[in-house]
Design a protein around this nucleic acid. Structure first.
Lengths: 338, 338
DNA sequence: AACGTCACCGCAATCGTTTGCATAAAAGAA
DNA sequence: TTCTTTTATGCAAACGATTGCGGTGACGTT
């Protein structure tokens, strides 16, 4: 905003016409003579005139900006989603403002307020792990500002969303373990206020039930990162409670489990089979390669943005709520092969 | 921008005062009576009034937005940088608009233009692999719009930057290989129009020289991704030209090389030692874990943003050009241990 | 000569907010 | 009482662009 960019007035002054004329000339309005248009366009490009998007936003009451609130950018899944969002937005002539909540409620709230202050045309949200109060999101919906959730939704908030079929995917993953003969399957779960974590656990439990295996509560632990997985595995070993299969709520947890098992001389997959969730770029490069559920982050970003753009452009607001459920793809690799 | 947000005028009308009074009351201006202030503030918070950032931007000729142009978000290194940028910007009350160039010149140019149209207060750029013409960036500097490069700079453009000491880091990595007795060390290089690639190659060559090893041109190949690394390794094997050490321009290339070697029954690190560059979150989870140079992406994002904010807030423009060189840390893991 | 038509252009309001200046009323001073 | 000061408020311009409406010549038509 420094360099005193040239405005329509500058052009007008130099040409001795009014700003209105310049504006219309630039838009090819029929009222303006060809000669004037030529002069205006020539000067505009010579001065490298660029319309001030801020002024246009104010005038038109739309910014052509969509805001994104994401827990953490440095996760492969989330950065894939952003990539999808960015691509669709770019093609539609929209810009993207990214905000990280860092999994904190306070920051999520603050992010939301700045996005609203910026008068973004629509908002994409994946709620933080910490968030249990959803009034701020409710408010957005109440104001009829286009809002679409992706991956992590806020229960009770009437808005569109695109999510993974966590229950189904977890079911598949667990069934894969039972069908390859595993009997004592552990689950490393995420925080249970997050519906995705809950659904994955329930998918796991359902799979056990359908396989006629009694769920063992001691095999379900809350562990959703490398270190917690390490501790959980060590605990299993110490208490002589080692499972023969592990289904983890995400890949890094699965990898933490796998590495720890191996370090303790336990073979993967022979002694313990491991399956992760939300296939990252590097799931395939562990040894053995990690079986996982591909969450299709890029695709999710695309779909969420398309849904949001539809709401924005068709001006339907939150009247037409739509929930898109993507099917995760279980990718079986070495960590769970028989 | 839909929901007809409440404005200062709405408050003014309801209270029977002028907009100016409301504005001043909200700012705590001493001219306004305590009673009026109380009323205004009370109503404002009751109506959930949020100042329109667009109008403020227009008025103040600053947006408190910084624009970022980044090659690809889905790389751990780049997403770490973004995370650093975001954190610093947030603390300073700035928003961040992210644009991906996808390593394309055209898109980089287009990104830059939209950022300029949005009148961002400053721009952070890491140039795309494809970019060889730097006029667009030159223009930004000429207009005295704050600009800071990170990681990948545009040669000849007089702007601040924060980079890794690629030459030094590559030197260290290669020396590590020579010092552990490797004699035939290959380099998998990136595109040579990118200074980072060039510098890494030169650091590699210098290290060979200082170790009294004659560089073998047949051991320097252009390969900067998984697949190219695979082809290069297969080619080495076919031509009976297998090196005993590989220094790759980035981690994914190193991993591609390592996996291919292993698949062909060649042991890592015993037969061939491998070192990568720009330590990713998953470098440590390969088997063997990959030696690599930690590029400190998060820190780079922090520093670049601090430099940019300084330029913006102190209004120094591009008069005070500063180049910060971060030192990469060679992290020796199993892939290159003797 | 008087009028209508058309091509071309400018005025002014508008978006939401800030801010220099003027102004009104109230209070104090002479 | 009259003038000055203080207190509290409003007016209007400005930021950069758009746009409805009105205006002005140059024509052609009768």
């Amino acid at each position: 905003m420094k360099g005193n960019q040239v405005t329509i007035k500058d052009i007008a002054k130099q040409l001795g016409v009014s700003p209105s004329t310049v504006s219309r000339a630039l838009q090819g309005h029929p009222d303006i003579s060809d000669e004037t248009k030529r002069q205006v366009n020539e000067l505009a490009s010579r001065l490298k005139y660029q319309p001030n998007a801020v002024a246009l936003s104010l005038k038109h009451k739309r910014t052509r900006i969509i805001g994104v609130i994401i827990p953490e950018i440095v996760h492969f899944f989330f950065s894939s989603v952003i990539s999808g969002i960015e691509d669709v937005a770019y093609d539609a002539g929209f810009n993207v403002i990214i905000c990280q909540s860092n999994e904190k409620y306070d920051r999520e709230l603050s992010n939301l307020n700045t996005l609203l202050a910026q008068r973004v045309d629509g908002i994409l949200v994946s709620v933080s792990k910490e968030t249990i109060d959803y009034q701020h999101l409710q408010r957005v919906v109440a104001q009829n500002i286009p809002l679409v959730f992706f991956d992590r939704v806020a229960p009770g908030v009437q808005a569109s969303s695109v999510i993974i079929d966590d229950h189904y995917s977890a079911y598949q993953a667990t069934r894969h373990l039972t069908e390859s003969g595993r009997k004592r399957i552990a689950h490393f779960a995420g925080p249970q206020n997050l519906s995705i974590s809950l659904n994955r656990k329930e998918g796991y439990l359902k799979a056990l039930q359908d396989s006629n295996i009694d769920p063992d509560p001691s095999l379900v632990v809350e562990a959703d990162n490398f270190e917690k997985a390490r501790m959980a595995v060590l605990n299993f070993i110490q208490t002589g409670n080692l499972p023969d299969g592990i289904f983890a709520v995400n890949d890094i947890t699965a990898i933490g489990a796998m590495k720890t098992l191996q370090k303790q001389g336990i073979r993967v997959p022979k002694d313990v089979a491991v399956v992760g969730f939300s296939d990252g770029r590097f799931s395939a490069i562990t040894d053995p390669p990690l079986s996982s559920v591909d969450q299709h982050g890029y695709e999710m970003g695309i779909i969420a943005t398309e849904m949001l753009l539809k709401q924005i452009l068709e001006d339907v607001g939150n009247n037409s709520i739509e929930t898109r459920v993507l099917r995760g793809d279980l990718i079986i690799r070495g960590s769970s092969k028989i």
